[in-house]
Design a protein around this nucleic acid. Sequence first.
DNA 1: GGCGGATTTAGGCGATCGCCCAAAAGTTGT
DNA 2: ACAACTTTTGGGCGATCGCCTAAATCCGCC
Lengths: 199, 199
Amino acid sequence: MQPEQTKQRILAAAAELFGELGFDATSTRDIAARSGVNKALLHYHFGSKDELLAALLDGYYGALTTTLAAAWRQRAHPAEQVQDVVDAYADFLAEHRAFCAIVHREVASGRHVEQIVARTLSVLELRIGWFGEGPTAELMQILTSVYGMVVTYFTYGPVLARLTGADPFAADALQARKRHVRRIVALLFAEMAPDAKGT
Amino acid sequence: MQPEQTKQRILAAAAELFGELGFDATSTRDIAARSGVNKALLHYHFGSKDELLAALLDGYYGALTTTLAAAWRQRAHPAEQVQDVVDAYADFLAEHRAFCAIVHREVASGRHVEQIVARTLSVLELRIGWFGEGPTAELMQILTSVYGMVVTYFTYGPVLARLTGADPFAADALQARKRHVRRIVALLFAEMAPDAKGT
DNA sequence: GGCGGATTTAGGCGATCGCCCAAAAGTTGT
DNA sequence: ACAACTTTTGGGCGATCGCCTAAATCCGCC
């Protein structure tokens, strides 16, 4: 087997298990078993369990940066651009549920925060110049709120499923959620900078 | 030492460590060491590590229910009541940072979800009749958003600290955050049900 | 065809985990 | 003072953890 294929198999299995059980609750033996490789290969290819997580996050953040940058370039007006980026972010989280769970849990644990902050910064960097000036306190509040609205929906997916009785990750539910968030974003930007609103 | 005092010491140490390191990364020996009791006492008083977590969550959710119910009764108009409950919830999370971290992480891990859903339901139950009817899809979206806006601020506290360079848990920062959330809640309820808005 | 490096394998080491046990110490009622 | 019960203690069991080692296997190149 190609070594690259081996690494990808390990990464895929690690993503699934870290997402399902959490970093701590997943053993390297679990990952080896699910990916069908020998357990010593994890350390041969990645060095340690922590470095495996780092490699996994690198892949996710790389893909996220590409995705958001692509969404960002589509339209001209700031408000529409934000809408598109939020939409793209929601789609990304829907497609990579494990990523969302991993990041959220590690942040809440206060561990691997350095890695996550650094990567989040490199993603945000793209759009901190959005409004000409640096991020104002107002903008930071809004970013936090929008981020929270989107991320919480995915993180609390199982809880929402129990509360509403419906699958929050079904296509129509996701569509409804995105519509809701878009509406709030529109409200926020309309209030904050009415002159900068697109259309 | 009174057995009740022993239990409280264990619970306090467990709250700190679960909040700082996470449930899995905290050993029963760590908890015993920090609380200054023998490690066998955790199992004598609580049965198992999982039951210790359950007891901890019981205490938190009980206090939360009391706090929110008290805030809920203060004012007459729905919009103001929601504002007060959101404020009280933010204050509660600020005061019990470990609770926020624990719940968020366990939910993201997909474990102990049953316990958390059940307790969340019992807290929400108080106010699901808020608007006469059951929770509409619209209301669920708003609840999720408001919850996400509040909770994410605390969960991502360390990240925000790095991004802004300021302490997000300082009194003035908390005040600013609460003001921001209140404003969004006002916007949402004004749009959703203009006639139900208080004042 | 054989050589050298990369990759894979089985097995296990030391540490740590949650949990349990038998005995000691403390507390209460009579 | 003694007995009955609760609480605390040190020690350790079996399981599992991340990681390592030495040998086997694979593969490109002369």
